[in-house]
Design a protein around this nucleic acid. Structure first.
Lengths: 180, 180
DNA sequence: TGTATACGTCTACCGTGTATACATGGCACC
DNA sequence: GGTGCCATGTATACACGGTAGACGTATACA
């Protein structure tokens, strides 16, 4: 990606992290980059595209799980990576449910999930469904946690809760893999 | 609730349904109600509160499941009710993940879920967790479906997929209920 | 009859995204 | 070496959004 565009997107992400989504205005981003608001339009279609790019940048931070792990550990790592990213970028992750879901960044994660399911022995015809189910839960949990939909008071408990939920979902995967 | 406030919130919901969330401006709502934009502030704190109220109104449309059904059927009904509501109010449901989650409307649904878990024999200490897990999935699925995060092409297939996902989650509930 | 209270209006302001027109500077190419 | 092009940035301006503040008016109740 062009370096200037990258700088613009990371600047937007910084502002979102520090001051929330509402603070991400064209003027604020331009200011921080050191250019005029209108100059942003040389690099970004419009504000919607800027936010999309910002989310995509955040998504790209989620690490790919080590290939030498078993499928279950890989999925757990992946999910943890999404959750960690959400906690780093609470404002950005909120966009995950309102923007189109077929960007390269998410396709990368979806692909990794599919591979894990294949290794687990999930029949082909169930993989897409289970991927949507698991990713919906993972992203939903991450968003809920940082947006206040979940109670804040026992915040550290949520890490354990997330882990336990994942274990339960792995059970579903295993069950589907061994049925019929 | 005061009738005027109710009228304002349903008008906002109508506009959101017809033209999307961006079309819900103070001026547009006021216009449709037949009053001045500033008059809205006699009934609603500010725009954020108006959107909160709009979501709450949509939530209140989700029917309580018939009490004579078994716990599993009640949960399925409840989840289906949420999904149906989301399809009726695609713009409003998008707010579900970004607004505080302890309104009367959602507490009602959360309460129903807890009761179902109690009937299922889920130990007390697991109920809150499983409620968050299931509701996160249900709302996440509903939002994904109407927001375009899921592919639109096989839209009717999503009803079946939702049902199957729920069955798998019921399996988790049953497993937790019978463990130790 | 007077007065408080609920509801509504008018005007105005500032912050937003962005269209349009204009500058400039480096690079390719003759 | 000149010359023209293209990428990048700027200046100005507009329409639209939320909402503050001052002002009306009618109904209920003393």
């Amino acid at each position: 990606m062009a370096p200037r565009k990258n700088q613009i997107l990371s600047t937007a992400l910084e502002i979102a992290d520090e001051f929330g989504l509402d603070a991400v205005t064209m003027r604020a981003v331009a200011n921080r980059v050191g250019i005029t608001p209108m100059a942003l339009y040389r690099h970004v279609e419009d504000k919607e595209a800027l936010l999309d790019g910002m989310l995509e940048l955040a998504m790209s931070e989620v690490p790919a799980p080590p290939a030498d792990l078993g499928w279950e550990a890989r999925l757990t790592e992946l999910a943890g990576g999404v959750r960690d990213m959400a906690r780093r970028h609470p404002a950005a992750i909120g966009l995950a449910f309102s923007r189109p879901g077929y960007t390269p960044g998410v396709r990368r994660l979806v692909g990794a999930i599919h591979e894990a399911f294949a290794d687990a022995g999930v029949p082909e015809r169930h993989r897409a469904r289970l991927e949507r189910m698991v990713s919906t839960f993972v992203v939903g949990f991450a968003v809920s946690e940082v947006s206040g939909r979940f109670p804040h008071d026992q915040a550290e408990g949520l890490a354990r809760e997330f882990a336990r939920d994942l274990r339960d979902l792995m059970g579903v995967v295993r069950a589907v893999a061994t049925e019929d």
